[in-house]
Design a protein around this nucleic acid. Structure first.
Lengths: 175, 175
DNA sequence: CCTCGTTGCTTGCAATTGCAAACGCGGTGG
DNA sequence: CCACCGCGTTTGCAATTGCAAGCAACGAGG
């Protein structure tokens, strides 16, 4: 793989640098990388790591993401309507809340998956012989919808019936 | 120097992986990296390049930015809470489930607004030396938190007794 | 002519990435 | 009992990153 296909990123950097009218050495110093290395990067002979890329972006006073996009390391926008990604990226909720949301969403997905094998293809993983076909008569409502995980309910509904939570908090050292 | 200080990113990856309930090897395959390398990354023994990081993000179905932020490679930008947009755009869940998620998320946001979000709400920095975000403390309910409209809960919870259909909590003692 | 000062590029070299192969552990089944 | 399977980890190795040192070229000044 001696074919450095990273040309575009190098070109882009050099473009930005010349546009800023600063010398290679100056940018190298500003970015905290060595001059020769920057030279090689600009000409596509080396594939800079994310760290170096970030420093170069700083030295160029451009957004790191712009460079990442150029380097093909990042998508301009998230292609998937990934709810999980959005939840995980959200920093407006607490870790606990995030966990609850993730749990709920995953349980929804799991619930819907009882007839459509998605691309996930969860082969094996059958360590437990306990089958949990959602079709269980126990937890399906009349319409057979959203039984909602008990853990989540327990978490959200402290006033609810105290189910003997034995596995929900295996590590909770009540003090 | 081995400089095993890259831990945060590794911890984050492992956290996300365990939450997704997939094995190290599975994620490695999904991300297109070798199993041992992923192991070393998760334990902070190696500093993955941006490319690898990006692939891991894809394998985890999380946004690349989230990983880059964790790795300290990009500044924590205001990515906007696109959780709602993602939920609305998701076609893998039913309309009812969608409404549940939206309700919960909005109630979380509301909760954080009037309360004191000094918890670990925004800066998701791993300043916590004791990471056990597993469902353990999910019981929350310190005080008047998580009001969550009862009507909504009632509507969702046709059954009274929460059956323990499966483990909602991603609690699995790996090791 | 010779000496600086600047530009960018090429050359070895230590350190690191990233992987294939192999290991120990725990569970399942013959 | 031992084979089998999957889990995470450890161990050598090729390939690569990234740098210090050094090179050739252009211009300014004595």
């Amino acid at each position: 793989m001696a074919l450095p296909k990273v040309g575009s990123i190098g070109e882009y950097i050099r473009e930005q640098r010349t546009h800023a009218k600063i010398s290679l050495r100056q940018l190298a110093a500003a970015a905290g990388v060595s001059n020769p290395y920057l030279s090689q990067i600009e000409r596509g002979l080396r594939k800079p790591s994310a760290e170096i890329l970030n420093q170069i972006a700083k030295g160029l006073h451009i957004s790191s993401q712009a460079l990442y996009v150029q380097a093909g390391l990042i998508e301009e926008r998230e292609p998937d309507s990934d709810v999980l990604a959005a939840i995980r990226a959200d920093h407006l909720i607490t870790e606990r809340q995030r966990q609850v949301l993730i749990d709920i969403y995953e349980s929804f997905r799991r619930e819907n998956r009882n007839g459509a094998p998605d691309e996930e293809a969860q082969t094996s993983q059958k360590a437990h012989p306990a089958p949990e076909p959602q079709g269980s008569d126990a937890n399906i409502s009349p319409e057979g919808e959203t039984p909602l995980p008990k853990g989540y309910l327990a978490a959200l509904k402290p006033y609810a019936a105290p189910v003997d939570s034995e596995n929900v908090t295996p590590e909770s050292k009540e003090g």
